[in-house]
């Protein structure tokens, strides 16, 4: 039982990261009904940009992080404008965008391989030292605390942006009802692009934050996408509060599973998958989703 404070701390830390990844994915889904397979790859690109600027060139971390966000926002906007928008207009079925998203995931993988190589990359720690509380019941590295606080601040910032800014209102209107939003004078094409850029930017931001702790490598894209899908399923697709809830729940499950089930081998994710399936059988739309998305 003395593990509980540590598990809770790890859960908060993982949950905050995961929630940000899921937020971007769910935003894109809510706006355009696109399941963005390339989300994990966008996260990896964000990590590599921060690595290059902060780790390799030695420019301050804040600038590197900002560059990660800007790069991904531009990339997201370009992908939406030149790839998704034309295909959505021309294709007879919404599902065709899935093929496009998968192809983009492959393309980004190829670009990452050519530009950044296949090596595992890490950067110097932001802050040194560890915080030890209550006679070694709780040990957390200081840089993890910093990253966790930054992630929570970003989530709060994102929610207030969606809630109070004009762009945020337009995006929410678009997510609620595309046609009605258009009738109310929302420039649908423009805000779709902004929304996609914003979702991609969030992925880049998490990548930039996490590279300081876990490092980054080419193979992290696919598994990250799968985790993001799971969080979105737990919380409900296309709902912002659901993405946050899903991220935090998955973070806590993973932290608890890795600590408590370590003696049974690598079965944490197997158990999470099975319980997810049972959960979805009872509540198919997730915790907060609208029935049938």
């Amino acid at each position: 039982m003395d593990q509980i404070p540590q598990i809770l701390a790890n859960g908060v830390y993982l949950g905050a990261q995961y929630a940000m990844i899921a937020l971007g994915l769910t935003l894109i889904f809510a706006l355009m009904n696109v399941l963005n397979f390339a989300h994990g790859q966008m996260y990896v690109i964000g990590g590599f940009v921060t690595y290059t600027i902060y780790g390799a060139w030695g420019i301050p971390f804040v600038i590197a992080l900002a560059m990660s966000c800007i790069t991904l926002a531009i990339l997201g906007a370009l992908i939406e404008k030149f790839l998704f928008a034309p295909v959505i207009k021309k294709s007879a079925r919404d599902e065709s965008t899935m093929l496009l998203a998968a192809a983009i995931a492959f393309l980004l993988d190829a670009v990452i391989l050519l530009v950044f190589g296949e090596k595992q990359r890490g950067v110097p720690k932001l802050v040194d030292g560890t915080t030890i509380l209550g006679d070694y019941t709780l040990v957390i590295a200081n840089d993890r605390i910093l990253i966790c606080l930054l992630a929570i601040a970003s989530i709060v910032g994102f929610i207030s942006f969606m809630q109070f800014s004009k762009t945020g209102r337009a995006l929410r209107a678009l997510a609620q009802d595309r046609v009605a939003a258009q009738l109310m004078g929302v420039n649908v094409d423009r805000y779709s692009m902004i929304g996609f850029a914003l979702g991609a930017m969030l992925a880049g931001l998490v990548g930039g934050l996490l590279v300081t702790i876990t490092g980054i490598n080419l193979g992290m894209g696919g598994p990250t996408s799968i985790k993001a899908f799971m969080m979105v399923m737990i919380g409900g697709a296309g709902v912002i509060s659901g993405a946050i809830a899903g991220g935090i729940i998955l973070g806590f499950l993973e932290a608890a599973g890795l600590a408590l089930l370590a003696s049974y081998g690598d079965i944490t994710y197997l158990l999470i998958f099975v319980s997810l399936m049972i959960f979805l059988a009872i509540r198919p739309q997730g915790l907060m989703g609208k029935p049938w998305g």
Binding site: F229, M230, A237, F273, L276, M277, L280, A281, G289, W292
Partner: peptide, 19 residues
Amino acid sequence: PILRLRGVYFAMITLVLTE
């Protein structure tokens, strides 16, 4: 259980199945 899901929910849960 999972065939009750539709659309993108079904797609996502099947994606998890392989894992």
